Computed example of a mutant assay.
Amino acid sequence: MVSDQTRAEIEEYLGQVPSWLDALSEPAADHSWGVVRDLEFGETELAGREKALVALGAAAAMNCPYCIHFHSEEARLEGVDDVGRNEAVNVAADVRYFSTILHGAEVEVDDFRRETAEIVGYIEQQGAEAAGAD
């Protein structure tokens, strides 16, 4: 259970203290809120819209109905429409799909990293050539 100070802070951020926060163990409760506050709600390198889409994609990949609902609503609050939310979920599904193939085929990580570096180099070269043509 969160401390009274943390409870007041959560209520200030969210308008209430969600009941599920009572499931947090005493030693980690305040810290757990701090992580959410600082990482998800705080000012970081990623904009709120980006964080909401990352979170929605991760929630969908984990098949968590609670997280999917929360982060879908969070994305909506950040101005992401249904098309954008669906795209985030589709990207997450694409990543999970290819991860399954890579693991199932036991692709060598070093080979994968080498090929990825070659692909990135090629794309960067194409971009540089296109910029030089302007």
Rank of each mutant, 00 (worst) to 15 (best):
S3K: 04
D4F: 02
Q5H: 08
E11Q: 00
L14W: 10
L14P: 00
P18C: 05
W20M: 06
D22Y: 01
A23R: 14
L24K: 01
L24C: 08
S25D: 04
E26N: 02
E26T: 01
A29S: 13
D30K: 00
D30Q: 00
H31I: 06
V36W: 13
R37W: 00
L39K: 00
E40I: 12
T44Q: 10
A47S: 15
E50I: 06
E50P: 08
K51A: 01
V54A: 14
G57I: 07
G57C: 15
A58T: 13
A59L: 11
A61P: 07
M62R: 11
N63Q: 08
C64W: 08
P65V: 13
H69Y: 11
H69A: 15
E74V: 05
A75L: 06
A75I: 07
A75T: 08
A75S: 14
A75P: 10
L77K: 13
L77N: 15
G79T: 00
G79L: 08
V89E: 03
N90V: 01
N90W: 02
A92P: 15
A92Q: 06
D94P: 04
T100M: 13
G104A: 14
A105K: 15
V107Q: 08
E108V: 10
V109Y: 03
V109T: 07
D110G: 08
F112A: 15
F112P: 06
F112M: 12
R114K: 13
E118N: 14
E118L: 08
V120K: 15
V120N: 02
Q125A: 15
G127I: 06
A131K: 12
G132C: 10
G132W: 02
D134I: 01
